[in-house]
């Protein structure tokens, strides 16, 4: 069941990228508003950026639970 849900989710995620080409941004102000499916790109890049930032933070700021005691 879990696997089916996961695959369905991945499938939907892939499908929603070409659908984005048919929908235009409401107010084009910056250049990225013209790129179709830009939110998909933001989603991937954003998630990766945050995970990398979190990993960097962990490398020097992660201490034992009783660090302050």
């Amino acid at each position: 069941m879990k696997k089916i849900l996961k695959r369905l989710f991945l499938l939907l995620a892939v499908v929603c990228i070409p659908v984005g080409f048919f929908i235009q941004h409401d107010h084009v102000v910056f250049f990225w508003h013209k790129i179709p499916s830009i939110e998909a790109i933001f989603g991937v890049i954003g998630a990766l950026l945050l995970i990398v930032a979190a990993a960097i933070l962990t490398s020097f700021a992660q201490k034992k639970e009783d660090f302050y005691d």
């Binding site: 989710f9 995620a13 929603c16 989603g43 991937v44 954003g46």
Partner: peptide, 11 residues
Amino acid sequence: QLFMLAGVAFI
């Protein structure tokens, strides 16, 4: 779209 693709990256 933002959530779907972020979800993929998260998985």
